[in-house]
């Protein structure tokens, strides 16, 4: 089997960065996320391959928080598109975990299937290679397995498996991965290593039947109670690797301008504000309910699997301690005859 020894990781990243933008898990300014390897400040920022994961997901690589779409020029009553900013430059995400890889599959399904291909997402995604890292030791807030994700088999082009000091097992899974492996094969070794034993999950939750049960719970009093301490910020939606709502807006000056899209959050009142002044989700309860129904019911109905990948980030980030695992448990236990 192919092995990447740990002292060669940086060389591999340097090599890959010659022909693509390589996003790696890095600590940065008291936080952490996937950042371009070329922008790393080695004095301040560490590669975080041996921690559980990073705080900000790799969602922004294929789906940036702000993405310029096209510029416009106005002449009289007509507007013309001056330039379109589809960005197909090659990108690699290195070291993403199975939960985040599943989240990218969610985005793929949303942006590329069911009759419409989003050309901006497609341009970025077509030239993207995913190098995933298998997880053998779930963290205190991890529950990916319960959401149908196999932490040992991320859905990616290449999987690396951390065997301690001896290095990473390097497993190529797809033709895209094959091409990348060939380009750095001189940095890999041929050796036999045994992958570590997977440890048990600390967080247990049973999602079985939840999507089905939620169908009859839209008006259930549980939402009032569960949402009562939500402060309606957008942290959960922005740290979430799979939340993908966006808004399209325009900036213009004189006869020029551009359209862009930017992440939006169903937690905001403005998200459902209507032109006539109405709002079908006027309070926290309706917004909160929508978010969890989308995660646990609506997406499952459309795509056959949930939109929550069990990464646990929202649990860590919520300022008021709202925990999606508790919500699943409460839904399970709720009586539906009320």
């Amino acid at each position: 089997m192919k092995i990447l020894s740990k002292d060669k990781v940086e060389r591999v990243l340097d090599k890959l960065a010659e022909s693509a933008e390589v996003f790696v898990p890095l600590s940065r300014a008291n936080s952490s996320g996937f950042y371009s390897w070329k922008t790393r400040n080695p004095e301040k920022e560490q590669l975080m391959l041996e921690t559980l994961n990073v705080y900000l997901s790799p969602k922004n690589v294929g789906f940036p928080q702000t993405e310029k779409m096209y510029s416009i020029i106005q002449s009289g009553t007509e507007a013309q598109i001056k330039e379109t900013f589809e960005d197909s430059s090659p990108r690699i995400i290195f070291g993403l975990r199975a939960c985040d890889a599943r989240a990218i599959r969610c985005l793929d399904d949303v942006f590329l299937t069911r009759g419409y291909e989003d050309s901006f997402y497609k341009a970025r995604r077509d030239n993207m290679v995913l190098i995933g890292q298998a997880c053998y030791e779930p963290g205190p807030n991890c529950f990916c397995q319960a959401m149908g994700v196999d932490p040992l088999e991320p859905e990616v082009d290449i999987v690396i498996r951390d065997c301690g000091d001896k290095g990473y097992i390097w497993e190529t899974k797809t033709p895209k991965g094959e091409e990348l492996t060939t380009s750095i094969s001189n940095l890999l070794e041929e050796k036999e290593l045994k992958a570590p034993e997977a440890k048990a999950f600390q967080t247990q939750v049973d999602y079985e039947g939840v999507a089905e049960k939620l169908k009859g719970m839209f008006e259930h009093p549980i939402w009032e109670d569960l949402s009562s301490n939500c402060q309606n910020c957008g942290i959960c939606t922005y740290v979430c690797p799979s939340c993908h709502c966006f808004d399209i807006q325009v900036k213009s000056w004189g006869e020029e301008g551009y359209r862009f899209r930017c992440w939006d959050s169903c937690m905001y009142g403005e998200y459902t504000a209507e032109a006539g002044g109405g709002n079908p989700r006027p309070t926290t309860k309706e917004r909160f309910r929508n978010r969890f129904l989308h995660k646990l019911e609506f997406f499952s109905e459309r795509y056959g699997y949930p939109l929550c990948t069990g990464c646990g980030r929202c649990i860590v980030a919520c300022p008021t301690g709202i925990n999606i695992v508790n919500i699943i448990n409460e839904v399970k236990e709720a009586s539906v005859d009320v």
Binding site: S27, S31, P140, N141, P319
Partner: peptide
């Protein structure tokens, strides 16, 4: 509590 959960999360360093 936010610092405590972050410190124990495995997602952040040096808290």
């Amino acid at each position: 509590p936010l610092k405590a959960i972050k410190r124990n999360s495995g997602l952040l360093q040096n808290i």
